Amino acid sequence: MSERPFWESKPLEAMSDSEWESLCDGCGRCCLHRLEEEESGEVYTTNVACRLLDTHSCQCSRYPERKQLVPDCIQLRAGDVQAYDWLPSTCAYRTLAEGRPLADWHPLVSGRAESVHEAGISVRGAVISEEFVHPDDFEEHIVNWVGD
Rank of each mutant, 00 (worst) to 15 (best):
E36L: 07
R34E: 14
A83L: 12
E13Q: 09
H56E: 13
K10G: 02
L102V: 04
C31D: 05
P5V: 04
L53G: 08
E8T: 13
R112D: 13
C27D: 13
A49L: 00
S18N: 04
G28C: 09
P88V: 08
R62S: 13
T95L: 10
P71M: 09
G79N: 03
A97T: 03
S129I: 05
Q68C: 03
S16W: 11
A97I: 02
V48F: 00
P64M: 04
E118M: 13
D148S: 14
H117G: 06
Y44M: 12
R77P: 00
W86S: 14
R62Y: 07
T55I: 07
R112H: 08
E38D: 08
F138E: 10
V133S: 06
G26I: 00
G99K: 03
V133T: 12
C27G: 15
A78M: 02
R112M: 06
S89L: 03
V43N: 12
R34Q: 13
V123T: 15
A83V: 05
N47R: 15
C24F: 03
H117W: 04
R51S: 05
C60F: 01
D136R: 09
A103C: 10
A78W: 01
N47V: 08
A92V: 11
I74C: 08
P135C: 05
W7R: 07
T46G: 07
A97V: 03
H106E: 14
E131N: 14
K67A: 15
V143P: 01
R4L: 14
N144E: 15
H117V: 11
V43Y: 00
W105I: 12
V127L: 05
A78V: 07
R100M: 12
W105T: 10
V116G: 03
K67L: 15
P107M: 14
V70T: 13
A14S: 15
K10C: 04
P101A: 05
D80F: 01
G28E: 00
T95H: 01
G28V: 08
E131S: 14
C73A: 09
H141V: 12
C58E: 01
W86R: 11
A119N: 10
G26P: 07
Y84G: 01
H134A: 07
V109M: 14
F132A: 10
L12K: 05
S18Y: 04
S110E: 12
W145S: 12
E140F: 14
D85L: 03
F132C: 07
C30M: 05
C91W: 00
Q68D: 12
D80Q: 06
C91D: 00
V43K: 13
C50K: 02
Q82Y: 02
V123W: 00
Q59H: 09
E3H: 02
L87H: 00
T95V: 15
P5S: 09
D148A: 10
S40I: 15
H141T: 11
V127G: 11
I142Q: 10
A103M: 13
S89D: 13
W145C: 11
W7I: 08
R124E: 12
H33W: 13
C30H: 01
P135E: 02
Q82A: 09
H56T: 13
S122P: 08
H117F: 05
Q68N: 08
G79P: 02
T55G: 11
E131P: 02
R66F: 12
W20K: 03
P5I: 03
A78I: 05
E38A: 10
